[in-house]
Simulated assay, not measured.
Amino acid sequence: MDLPVMPPVRPMLAKSVQGIPDPEKLGGLSFEPKWDGFRCLVFKDGDEVELASRNTKPLTRYFPEVVAAMREQLPERCVLDGELFVALGDRLEFEVLQERIHPAKSRIEMLAEKTPASYVAFDLLALDEESYADRPFAERRAALAQALGHLDGPCFLTRTTTDPAQAEEWFHQFEGAGLDGVVAKPLGATYQPNARTMLKIKHERTADVVVAGYREHKTSTPERPLLGSLLLGLYNGDGQLQHVGVSASFTEKRRAELIEELQPLVVPIEDHPWGHWEEFLTANPDRIPGTQSRWSQGKDLSFTPLRPERVLEVAYDHMEGRRFRHTAQFRRWRPDRDPESCGYDQLDEPVSYDLASVLRVDQEG
C-alpha cells in the first residue's frame, strides 16, 4: 500500500456544545448528522483495503462485507474518514454493531450475513495521488461529493448543509432514527488529526470515562455478590487519572452480571493509579475513593480497584469542580475507545470557574 496519506492516522475530534452554533460567528460552518457507530478511517489502494479505528487499531477483519463493498464502490485510491454502523429497519443499532468485535472468524462471518454493516464517509484525506489533509474542509467536501456522490449503499456519503435552520431540523428529526445529534465543521479548517476542531451537538450531555473500580451493593453477600456502583475517572492534562464520580442505579440482575464481568480486571491496590492515595485518612481535594470526609465518617468507603482498561459512556447533568455533580447514568460500553483518550477536554461544561469573575461588578454599571 502506497498512498499520499498513510496509516496510522488519528481522526479529527469534536467538542460538545449546547445548541446549533451561529456560522457567522465562526467563519462559516458545514453541518452534518452525527452517526452512532464506530469511527473508521479507510485506506484503499486498489484491492488493498485497511480499516482503522479512532485509536488506530485494525478493524478490517471484523467487517469483511464492508471491505468487499469498498473494493467495488470506492475510488481506486483514497483515504476516507467516516463511520461504520449497523441499521436494522429504520434505526441505527449500536449494540448490534458492538457484537462484531469478536475473536471467532465464524461468528464474524455469521453476523456479516445476518446483520451486515455499512459505511458512511464524511471527510476526505487523500484521493488518487493527492493529499487533501491540508486543504480547507470546503474543498475536501466538494471533492468528496464528486467522488462518492453516486453511492447508494452499503457505502454512503453523508448529507451536509450550511443552513443552521436545516441543522436544527435535522437535530430533532433524525433522533428517531437513532442518530446521535449534529456535527459542525469549520469550512476553512484543515484536517487536524486528534484535535478537537469540530463541534458536536448531542441529544444529551455525555462523556466517555474510564472505569477504575467498583463498590459492592449493601445487599451483596459472599454467596451472591452484587455491584453497587462503578467508580469513574478522567485523565487530566498531566496524564493522571482523576476520580470524577460514580455510576449506579442498576437492576439486581445487572448488578450480578456487572460484578462477574469485571472480575478479570481486579488488581491489587498497589498496582492501581489510585494506590498512592491509601495514605490519606481525612478529606482531600479530589474526594478520593476510600478516604473520609466530614460527611462520610463511619461509612465503609472501601472499593475494589480495577485495571483502567474499560471505557464507559455515561450521561451526566452538570459538573461541580472537577467531578460530576450527581450520579452519572450508565449508557453503554465503548470498546472502540482508548482509556488514555478519555480526558476533560471532551466536556461541554467548564470543569472549574473563576469565582472572582462571577462576583465582579462593572464599576460603570
Rank of each mutant, 00 (worst) to 15 (best):
L3W: 10
P7K: 11
P7N: 08
L13C: 08
L13S: 10
V17A: 12
P21D: 09
L26H: 13
G27V: 07
L29H: 01
F31Y: 14
F31T: 01
E32V: 02
P33R: 03
K34M: 09
G37D: 00
C40Q: 09
L41C: 08
V42G: 11
A52T: 13
N55W: 06
T56P: 03
K57Q: 15
P75F: 06
P75K: 06
E76R: 15
G82L: 04
E83C: 12
L92A: 05
V96R: 11
V96D: 03
R100Q: 08
L111G: 06
A112W: 05
A117Q: 07
Y132H: 12
A133I: 12
D134Q: 15
P136I: 12
E139G: 00
A142Y: 02
A143V: 04
A145P: 01
T160F: 08
D163V: 09
H172V: 00
F174K: 01
G181W: 06
A184F: 04
A184K: 05
T190Q: 05
R196E: 07
D208R: 09
V209N: 05
G213R: 02
H217A: 13
P225E: 07
S229A: 14
L231Y: 03
D238F: 06
H243Y: 15
H243I: 00
H243G: 01
V246S: 08
T251W: 01
R254T: 14
L258Q: 03
E261P: 02
L262S: 08
L265H: 05
V266G: 04
V266K: 09
V267G: 00
V267Y: 00
P268W: 01
I269R: 10
H276A: 11
E278N: 13
F280V: 12
T282Y: 10
A283C: 10
A283S: 15
I288H: 08
R294K: 14
R294Y: 12
W295D: 12
K299M: 13
P305Q: 05
E309G: 04
V314L: 05
A315Y: 02
D317K: 05
D317M: 00
F324W: 07
F324T: 04
Q329E: 10
F330W: 14
R334A: 09
E340P: 00
D345L: 04
D345F: 01
Q346R: 07
L347Y: 05
E349L: 11
P350H: 10
V351L: 06
S357I: 04
L359K: 13
R360D: 11
E364Q: 07
G365F: 03
